[in-house]
Amino acid sequence: MALASPTAPRRRTAAVAAYAELAIVALAFLAPFGWLFLASLSTSPTLDTSIPDEPTLRNFADVLTGDNLHSLANSLVLSLGSALLTLLLAAPAAYPLSRYGRRFGRPILLGLLFATGLPVTAIMVPVYGLFVQLDLLDSVPATVLFLTATGLPMAIWMMKNFMDEVPISLEEAAWVDGANGLRALVRIVLPLMVPGTTVVFTFTFALTWGNFFVPFILLIDPGKQPASVAIYQYFGINGMASYGLLAAFSILYSLPVVLLYAVAQRTLGNAFAMQGAVKG
């Protein structure tokens, strides 16, 4: 029989206190969500938080109009475009940084790390100037290129770290057989780092999907604007009248990134939590 430790009761009290505190924290974090869900189900929502008399999904049906669906499709084009382009550029760039010794890669990596710290918000003023001068304003491809550029330093850095974990011995065999670096990368290294590549993809996709400021400045034609900008404009124009629709649209817009994160978290576990511990 184990002797009861003299500190056991104190420990139990501490545990109970910790659970109570966690419950309070959880409720506090949950509270701001309340309005969003209740308003989206209500027929005549205001900024009050009240349980709707007759909950309805009509707001969700009503908000899925042509224009709104179009803006969601625009979000998809921007996010998918920048995420794929990021992988396409980051993978080959990360390869020599990972494989060819410190003297070669270190200054470049330090530069990339420095760039990840610079506030993208501040770059928007000169980028707007650049886009005006090059006549790129309101161009979706140019916006994708810029979004890719802003995420690239972090993406290369993450890719390089994931690549470091793939042992080099496998490629050495391929080199002996005469395969060049690119072949070795595509055939041997990338297939072994699918989880890492998924993390980089998810991260870039979510970052672009949630981005409001960049498309708000660079895209002018409402037909090209993504959901984030559309929701903002919608709110500005319809304001008070349509909180239910605003809430429903916000939920529909948030759903893809929340699901993407949940799936990535579940399948990739810690690799995602740590390497992808990133916020947009």
Binding site: W35, W209, G210, L246, Y253
Partner: peptide, 18 residues
Amino acid sequence: VGAWVLPELVAGFMWYAF
């Protein structure tokens, strides 16, 4: 983490209402 994953714009609306 849910609060963190949510798009910034939506978080802004929620806190405006809250």
